[in-house]
């Protein structure tokens, strides 16, 4: 995108960076992954869980986490569910269409090497975790045991299911669970916190959780009950981010401006906020 009046110092959080869609990958119903590259300049470096404001012409922007690998410098991928007007427009894009991003921004997952890792995802919550999963796939030797628990309503709602095999081959214990048993289903049945409750964890386990608020709370509680240090549990928060720079106020969660201080948070710092209705 050409900037008509070039600012003295270009800030990609303030001024849009034009991207072109290079591939549209259908995922589960209502969900697609857009692969995109900037029309000028390099693909921006980012860390797992970081987010961009992704813009649709004439409509607006939605905050979406980058779901590709942080080591992938040829493109970014964003997995988007058709929920509102903006995501409806984004999921409608075709190869060659132009859009823009502002970002990437936000506090990433703490993926310091060492210790066991448990990654828990509810529904489409696996999207903001995919870059962390791909990072562990690529750097498997840096971690102890790595367990991924993915929960979905039905087997048809399991996002990235075709990638499980590659993740398992890399040494990740992938446990997929669905809410109710289905004909032909041989995996786990039940909610993520229940599945977590049946597992055992070492003292040096670090946990990453993404899903609806209630799922994150129950999963964190199950992990604490299973002996995981609460300070080593991280969650990622989804609130109404608009500006991405901490100025517009919409994404407040108590004392946090989620776009500025999150989206990743240490569970103890947000446990109370997540437990108060409409906080």
């Amino acid at each position: 995108m050409t900037v008509a009046t070039a600012p003295e110092s270009f800030d990609p959080m303030i001024t849009p960076v034009e991207h072109v869609v290079t591939d549209v990958i259908p995922e589960i119903p209502d969900v697609v992954t857009l692969r995109m590259v900037p029309t000028t300049g390099d693909v921006a470096p980012f860390l797992p869980a970081q987010v961009s404001m992704v813009g649709a012409f004439g409509i607006g922007e939605a905050a979406i986490s980058i779901s590709s690998s942080p080591s992938e410098r040829a493109y970014h991928e964003y997995t988007i569910r058709h929920a509102g007007a903006i995501t409806s427009a984004l999921t409608h894009l075709r190869r060659g269409d132009r859009l823009w991003t502002r970002g990437p921004f936000g506090r990433p997952w703490d993926l310091h090497p060492g210790g066991d890792l448990v990654i828990a995802a509810g529904g489409i919550g696996v999207a903001p975790l995919r870059s962390a999963i791909l990072h562990t796939v690529e750097h498997r030797d840096l971690f102890g045991a790595v367990v991924l628990v993915v929960g979905a309503r039905t087997s048809h709602d399991l996002l990235y299911r075709r990638e499980y095999e590659a993740w398992r081959d890399a040494g990740i214990d992938v446990i997929a669970t669905i809410d109710h048993d289905e004909a032909g289903w041989s995996g786990a049945v039940g909610f993520v916190p229940t599945v977590i409750g049946d597992l055992e964890f070492g003292a040096d386990t670090r946990a990453l959780i993404c899903g609806p608020d209630i799922m994150m709370r129950r999963t964190a509680d199950a992990l604490v009950a299973a002996g995981v240090d609460p300070d080593r549990i991280q969650v990622t928060l989804e609130r109404n981010m608009q500006c991405g720079t901490g100025r517009c106020g919409h994404c407040q969660l108590g004392g946090m401006l989620v776009c500025r201080d999150g989206p990743v948070a240490d569970y103890p710092s947000v446990a109370r906020a997540l437990s108060i209705e409409e906080w």
């Binding site: 995108m1 900037v3 008509a4 009046t5 303030i14 029309t39 132009r98």
Partner: peptide, 9 residues
């Protein structure tokens, strides 16, 4: 199809 952004001065 190309986008050109003009920031408000």
């Amino acid at each position: 199809g190309e986008l050109r952004v003009e920031p408000a001065p």
